Amino acid sequence: MKKLLISTVMFFAMLGCSLKSTIRDTAQDITNNTVAMLDDAIDKITQESESWQATLHELAENLTDEAQSTIRNEVQNLANRTIAAAGSELRCNVDFLGARVVQALQRIKAEVLKKPIPARNPAICQVVPSAIDMNLMPSRRNKVDISGYDFDNQSLKLYLVTNTNQKLDVTHALNRLSHYHLVLNLGSNGVLLNNASKHLILEYKNNAMSSIAITQPVVPDCKEEEVSFSPDVVTYMPPRTRGDRDYGGNGPSVTSNVKIYVDNNTIKAKVKMLARETKSDWTTAEGESVFTIYTAPSSRRIVSIVSDNETSTNYLDSNHAEDFFETGSGELIKRFAFVGDTAGDEAGTRTRVKVTFNRVRVKLKEIGNCNE
């Protein structure tokens, strides 16, 4: 009886080991079969990208074993995601979709083999428009569509880079419509672009996925032009600086100088006059004064004075009348008119110079919306 009991125990022990081995072998066969079907699908799609849809359908149909049901569901989900990403409005090309399907099947294969599963990283297949044209009205450049794959559950970041390379986080303007469709909002509640905007960068895990150029309006070179003008007549009476106020018929000896120059965006004339008695107490009237004779338009900058910018003259006064001196068309001053000596006191009260200008020519340069 004891020998019978031992034999029975040994029989069931051997049967149990055999059953476990059979189950293990069966599971391994299913795994090998599944991996082989995955490898066949990967090879086929790698060689013919356009076959991805038919290949996935065939693969799902061949995964008939109950143990393969989970893998079959993953393949069917992959097919559905890829069909969505292939929509005509997004135009992901066949090669792109084939490559993404192959990567997804490799992840499924790693899962079956219980190996480390490669990361599922997002990818971009198309950006519309490919660049943002700031020449367009804001209403015609208010969004950017990005099509691709695996945008769901990913920490994507959007940055605006300025022309000084400042990097601003504008992720709030990134809208995820689906796992294959992103929209960048460039409207009033999105990314506010201006003439300092350089480009947008879409990043994943601190790596740039896409850089979208922002094309600023072409700025023309600032134009230069010459203009001429006729300044108003300028009169200057220098103050008395020496002696009494009466030249008393002793001259005076008169010198005058007029010079024009650019000051900010105006042209100014500095008028000097000296009238000195030739003897006695040397009665003198002497001084200078500055007059604004031209202001450039706000849209122009004065580059230089093209015509003559200085004229001088001198003479000895010998009467009580006003004295006139014509200089010529090439000079800054066309005519000097002097009052030197008079019948009475004059230094600081009557002695003066009046200048009439020839036309002054200046070079102006456009400012504002142009390239200096």
Rank of each mutant, 00 (worst) to 15 (best):
N319P: 00
V144K: 05
N77A: 13
K143F: 13
S298W: 02
Q216G: 03
T8D: 02
I146S: 03
T284C: 08
T342L: 04
D281L: 11
E224A: 05
D95N: 11
K270T: 13
R352Q: 13
F336L: 03
C17E: 01
F151Q: 05
N207A: 11
V75A: 12
D323F: 08
R352G: 00
P122Y: 02
T46S: 15
I212A: 05
Y315E: 02
D221N: 12
A86T: 04
N163D: 15
G249M: 06
A84N: 12
V233E: 12
Q68K: 10
F338Y: 12
C222F: 09
A41R: 04
L15Q: 03
Y294G: 05
D25A: 09
T255F: 13
G344W: 07
A41Q: 08
N142S: 15
A104L: 03
C125D: 04
Y315C: 05
Q68I: 03
F291K: 11
R361A: 07
P220A: 09
D145Q: 10
N265G: 00
I71R: 07
L332E: 00
R242K: 11
V94N: 10
A86K: 12
V218R: 06
Q106H: 01
K3D: 12
D43L: 14
F324K: 12
L200S: 01
E286D: 14
M273R: 03
F12Q: 01
M273E: 06
S197F: 05
I260L: 07
N189Q: 14
G344V: 03
A54N: 15
N175W: 04
A196C: 01
M137D: 14
T266R: 13
R276E: 14
M10F: 12
Q106A: 03
S69W: 01
Q106T: 08
V303Y: 04
W282P: 00
V271Y: 08
G330F: 04
V303G: 05
K268S: 04
T31R: 15
T215I: 14
G16W: 08
G98H: 09
T164W: 05
N195M: 10
N62I: 00
N33D: 14
A104T: 09
E322V: 10
M37Q: 15
L174E: 02
R350F: 08
L200M: 09
K109W: 03
N142Q: 11
T55Y: 06
A60Y: 03
I293E: 04
V161N: 09
A67S: 12
N165Y: 11
G16H: 06
Q106F: 00
K167F: 00
A99Y: 02
M37T: 01
L4D: 08
L177Y: 09
S69E: 13
D152H: 09
A337Q: 11
G251Y: 06
H320A: 04
K363N: 09
L56R: 04
